[in-house]
Protein backbone atom coordinates (compact mmCIF):
# COMPACT_ATOMS: atom_id res chain seq x y z
CA UNK A 1 0.00 0.00 0.00
CA UNK A 2 2.75 2.34 1.04
CA UNK A 3 4.91 1.34 -1.93
CA UNK A 4 2.03 1.89 -4.30
CA UNK A 5 1.62 5.38 -2.96
CA UNK A 6 5.37 6.00 -3.12
CA UNK A 7 5.41 4.76 -6.71
CA UNK A 8 2.63 7.07 -7.66
CA UNK A 9 4.25 10.11 -6.06
CA UNK A 10 7.50 9.09 -7.68
CA UNK A 11 5.99 8.96 -11.16
CA UNK A 12 4.25 12.23 -10.71
CA UNK A 13 7.40 13.98 -9.52
CA UNK A 14 9.52 12.36 -12.23
CA UNK A 15 7.28 13.79 -14.93
CA UNK A 16 7.03 17.14 -13.19
CA UNK A 17 10.78 17.43 -12.92
CA UNK A 18 11.44 16.27 -16.46
CA UNK A 19 9.33 19.16 -17.66
CA UNK A 20 11.43 21.63 -15.71
CA UNK A 21 14.82 22.79 -16.89
CA UNK A 22 17.57 21.85 -14.51
CA UNK A 23 17.64 24.51 -11.83
CA UNK A 24 20.78 25.45 -10.00
CA UNK A 25 21.06 27.66 -6.99
CA UNK A 26 22.89 30.54 -8.58
CA UNK A 27 21.60 32.05 -11.84
CA UNK A 28 22.43 29.82 -14.75
CA UNK A 29 25.68 28.52 -13.28
CA UNK A 30 25.90 24.74 -13.34
CA UNK A 31 26.56 23.49 -9.83
CA UNK A 32 29.45 21.30 -8.80
CA UNK A 33 27.27 18.44 -7.60
CA UNK A 34 25.47 18.43 -10.94
CA UNK A 35 28.75 18.06 -12.78
CA UNK A 36 29.76 15.18 -10.56
CA UNK A 37 26.52 13.30 -11.08
CA UNK A 38 26.21 14.11 -14.76
CA UNK A 39 27.61 10.79 -15.88
CA UNK A 40 24.21 9.16 -15.77
CA UNK A 41 21.17 9.88 -17.91
CA UNK A 42 19.00 9.03 -14.94
CA UNK A 43 19.72 12.26 -13.17
CA UNK A 44 16.08 13.35 -13.10
CA UNK A 45 14.96 10.12 -11.61
CA UNK A 46 17.73 10.32 -9.04
CA UNK A 47 16.59 13.79 -8.05
CA UNK A 48 13.15 12.45 -7.28
CA UNK A 49 14.34 9.40 -5.45
CA UNK A 50 16.70 11.56 -3.46
CA UNK A 51 13.96 13.96 -2.53
CA UNK A 52 11.92 11.06 -1.20
CA UNK A 53 14.89 9.51 0.61
CA UNK A 54 15.62 12.79 2.35
CA UNK A 55 12.05 13.19 3.50
CA UNK A 56 12.00 9.61 4.71
CA UNK A 57 15.29 9.95 6.57
CA UNK A 58 14.14 13.14 8.29
CA UNK A 59 11.02 11.27 9.35
CA UNK A 60 12.94 8.34 10.71
CA UNK A 61 15.27 10.57 12.70
CA UNK A 62 12.26 12.32 14.19
CA UNK A 63 10.79 8.97 15.15
CA UNK A 64 14.06 8.20 16.92
CA UNK A 65 13.68 11.23 19.16
CA UNK A 66 15.09 14.26 17.32
CA UNK A 67 13.11 17.45 16.90
CA UNK A 68 11.99 18.40 13.40
CA UNK A 69 14.49 21.19 12.73
CA UNK A 70 17.49 19.25 14.03
CA UNK A 71 16.56 16.23 11.92
CA UNK A 72 16.21 18.42 8.84
CA UNK A 73 19.56 20.14 9.36
CA UNK A 74 21.29 16.84 9.94
CA UNK A 75 19.92 15.25 6.79
CA UNK A 76 20.78 18.41 4.88
CA UNK A 77 24.45 17.91 5.71
CA UNK A 78 24.45 14.50 4.02
CA UNK A 79 25.26 13.89 0.36
CA UNK A 80 22.78 12.18 -1.95
CA UNK A 81 24.68 8.92 -1.78
CA UNK A 82 24.77 9.03 1.99
CA UNK A 83 21.05 9.68 2.25
CA UNK A 84 20.20 6.81 -0.06
CA UNK A 85 22.51 4.52 1.91
CA UNK A 86 20.58 5.39 5.07
CA UNK A 87 16.95 5.69 4.02
CA UNK A 88 14.92 2.93 5.57
CA UNK A 89 17.90 1.47 7.38
CA UNK A 90 18.49 3.84 10.27
CA UNK A 91 17.25 1.42 12.88
CA UNK A 92 19.58 -1.32 11.65
CA UNK A 93 22.68 0.70 10.72
CA UNK A 94 25.55 0.46 13.22
CA UNK A 95 25.32 3.20 15.84
CA UNK A 96 28.52 3.54 17.84
CA UNK A 97 27.73 4.26 21.44
CA UNK A 98 29.12 2.18 24.23
CA UNK A 99 32.66 2.66 25.39
CA UNK A 100 33.13 -0.52 27.35
CA UNK A 101 35.04 -3.47 26.07
CA UNK A 102 32.37 -6.01 26.90
CA UNK A 103 34.05 -9.28 26.20
CA UNK A 104 37.59 -10.21 25.57
CA UNK A 105 37.77 -13.82 24.57
CA UNK A 106 40.23 -16.27 26.03
CA UNK A 107 41.55 -16.55 22.50
CA UNK A 108 42.67 -12.96 22.71
CA UNK A 109 44.75 -13.68 25.76
CA UNK A 110 46.39 -16.56 23.99
CA UNK A 111 47.11 -14.30 21.05
CA UNK A 112 48.19 -11.51 23.27
CA UNK A 113 50.88 -13.59 24.84
CA UNK A 114 51.70 -15.72 21.80
CA UNK A 115 51.95 -12.97 19.23
CA UNK A 116 50.77 -9.45 19.71
CA UNK A 117 51.17 -8.44 16.13
Amino acid sequence: MKTALTNMICRFLAIAIMMMPFQSGQAAMIGTDQVNSAATVQVERNVVLNYLSRAQTVNELQNLGLDAQTAKDRVNAMTNDEVSSLAGKISSAPAGGDGLVVLILVVFFIWYFAFRR
Binding site: A77, L86, I90, P94, A95, G97
Partner: peptide, 23 residues
Protein backbone atom coordinates in the same frame (compact mmCIF):
# COMPACT_ATOMS: atom_id res chain seq x y z
CA UNK B 1 25.58 15.64 20.65
CA UNK B 2 22.88 17.61 18.84
CA UNK B 3 24.62 16.96 15.52
CA UNK B 4 25.34 13.23 15.66
CA UNK B 5 23.70 11.56 18.65
CA UNK B 6 20.45 9.61 18.28
CA UNK B 7 18.83 9.20 21.70
CA UNK B 8 16.78 6.09 21.10
CA UNK B 9 19.63 4.31 19.34
CA UNK B 10 22.02 5.37 22.09
CA UNK B 11 24.66 6.00 19.50
CA UNK B 12 25.78 7.80 16.35
CA UNK B 13 25.65 6.75 12.69
CA UNK B 14 28.74 6.68 10.47
CA UNK B 15 27.13 8.92 7.86
CA UNK B 16 26.39 11.55 10.48
CA UNK B 17 29.94 11.48 11.78
CA UNK B 18 31.07 12.46 8.28
CA UNK B 19 28.28 14.97 7.76
CA UNK B 20 28.76 16.78 11.09
CA UNK B 21 32.46 17.41 10.45
CA UNK B 22 31.55 19.30 7.27
CA UNK B 23 29.39 21.70 9.19
Amino acid sequence: VTLVYIPSRQGSLQVEMLAAARR
